[in-house]
Amino acid sequence: MNIFRLLGDLSHLASIFILLHKIRTTKSCAGISFRSQALYVLVYLTRYLDLLWGPWLLYNTVMKLFFIGSSVYVLYLMKFDYKPSHDMGLDNFKVEYLIGGSFVMALLFNLAFTFDEVMWSFSLWLESVAILPQLFLLQRTGEAETITTHYIFALGAYRALYIPNWLYRWVMEGRVEFIAVFAGIIQTIVYADFFYVYFTKVIQGQKFELPA
């Protein structure tokens, strides 16, 4: 554990609390992509298969259970409690391509051609692009509530903070997880445009608006 990884994980936790806070306080899931949220459930379920056989490190286990539980809970909230506020017409990014592409990448790049390693690799490739339906929805609506942009920022910052963590571990421990590193870099690039608008507008106190 180093400071970058810890900050990354805290950013990930914060993103979920911001999302839940947004849904509760605005009593609406408007602007939140159901498709991205569903992809996150798939990401966590396929990555944390090792919960079934261990080893169960306390920190990791608690976090894994939280990420699975909270992502399923958000889906539940969107599907039932706050269903009418959901932008179903605009939230129509073709996730089949993201899932299919990630699966092909997982078949090509994995540590071993076993079910759990292919699923682990799949989860990383899928996570790297899982925000695309959310960014697509943002593009379609052209603007976003500030709290929604804080959510997306915290979620993107989590993986961006893992990059110095990997650099640190490579230098200090000689440890490199190539799949995680490549997928993490792709994920951060996917967020680049969003980060730019977030830093130039939201941080300056302006509304998140995309040029028409």
Binding site: R5, D50, P55, N60, L111, T114, D116, E117, Y162, E177
Partner: peptide, 10 residues
Amino acid sequence: SAALETHDEL
């Protein structure tokens, strides 16, 4: 999974 590397990150 343990043979090659253990995935100890989230």
